[in-house]
Amino acid sequence: MVTVTLGPEGTYSHRAARAIDDEIDFRQSVTSIVDAVASGEYDRGVIPVENSIEGSVTESLDAVAEYDVAVVREIVTPIRHALLAQGAEFETVASHSQALAQCRSFLDREYPDTSLEAVASTAQGVEYARENPSVAGIGHPDNADERLEILAEDIQDQDSNATRFFALAPAEERSKGGGKTSLVVYPNANYPGLLLELLNPFANRDINLTRVESRPSGQRLGDYVFHVDIEAGLYEARTQEAIAELEDLAENGWVRRLGSYDTEHVVD
């Protein structure tokens, strides 16, 4: 089995992917990862979905709504950011936009005059720092080596900083078993009380909603796709009943079952 995730080597996605596979390839965007899994090019893909400080990764939400894939596992890992550079004098801090945002208070306080550059991944920012003494990177402290020193550790704004990742598989591997389920709902409608109607089937059956988020459908302004996570498996009768009611409400659109899965906490 081969897993694809965000590269280069050393990203937090890479660290999460190591929890499910030893053979890992890399892509530079979430969308290309989801596409590669949907087409069957890879057995598994690992993508970041939500961070406890910065919230959802919108590219991931849009990609799982666009491509037919299965979510087979959830991986939650703590995020420990370090500032890495060749020396104490640098002009730019380069990292993924989420990492820069997660360390905003530290950077504003300690390096208010330093420019910030958003790049494709934390590991790419670290590579830039390894190649250029005028650049510092933000990444896991394990990325330090003979060329890069750790200038500061645990620079994230919250000690509880953590990211959840989805392990994806081709659609035919979708499972009904697991403690959580993710759905994508496109009602193709817009009227007062719509969202309440969409959520009632779960509330009426005592199914806990752990996340509800809207994303633009791309069809027209004001038209939305809803991402819903619930604490119940697709195998459960109450889940099947709730989704059947949901499909009736979204009769002009569609409901996609991404699958049921369990959560693994990885401390690395």
Results as ranks from 00 to 15, higher is better:
L209Q: 11
P78A: 00
I79C: 01
L249S: 04
T210Y: 07
C103W: 01
L258E: 04
V126M: 10
S214I: 05
L116M: 09
V30D: 10
V119M: 10
A237C: 00
T263V: 15
P216G: 12
A250W: 05
D25E: 15
G178W: 11
D22R: 10
V34S: 06
V46W: 03
R15A: 11
D229W: 08
V255G: 02
G87A: 05
A16F: 08
E110G: 03
L221F: 08
A171Y: 10
L198S: 01
L116T: 06
T3V: 15
S29F: 07
V267C: 00
L258N: 00
Y186R: 07
N190S: 15
L195Q: 14
L198K: 00
Y186H: 08
S39Q: 08
T163N: 07
L84P: 06
L195Y: 08
Y186T: 11
G177K: 11
V69L: 02
R164Q: 13
D159E: 11
E127Y: 10
E172V: 13
N200G: 00
F166C: 08
G178E: 08
L61T: 07
V34A: 01
E213F: 08
E247I: 07
A118L: 11
E146T: 02
S60V: 06
I20M: 04
H96N: 13
L151M: 07
N190W: 11
E173G: 05
V266A: 05
V185P: 09
D145S: 04
Y111M: 06
D25M: 13
H96A: 06
N51I: 00
M1V: 13
I53E: 03
L249M: 09
S121T: 15
A136W: 04
N190E: 10
E172N: 11
G218M: 07
D22K: 07
A244K: 07
E23N: 14
E172Y: 09
V37A: 02
G7S: 05
E213L: 15
I138K: 04
R73Q: 09
V267E: 15
F166E: 06
I75E: 04
T181Y: 08
E91L: 04
T77V: 12
V71F: 03
V225Y: 07
E245S: 09
I207R: 05
R109H: 05
R18I: 08
N143R: 13
Y128A: 14
G193P: 05
E213H: 09
Y42M: 04
L151D: 00
E127P: 01
T163V: 13
A244C: 00
D35Q: 15
A101V: 02
H14Y: 09
R215V: 06
I24M: 12
L107D: 02
R220W: 05
E241L: 13
G178Q: 05
Q240Y: 03
V46H: 01
T31P: 02
L196M: 09
Y261V: 02
F226H: 14
H265A: 07
A85R: 01
D108L: 12
Y128E: 13
V46C: 06
G45E: 04
F165T: 03
E146P: 00
A19S: 11
Q102P: 04
T210N: 06
F90H: 03
A232H: 10
A85G: 12
V2I: 11
A129D: 01
V34W: 03
A152R: 10
L199H: 01
A16N: 03
V126S: 10
A152Y: 05
D43Q: 10
S175M: 07
A36G: 09
R164Y: 04
D157G: 12
I24Q: 10
F166A: 13
V185Y: 01
Y191M: 08
G139Y: 02
E231R: 12
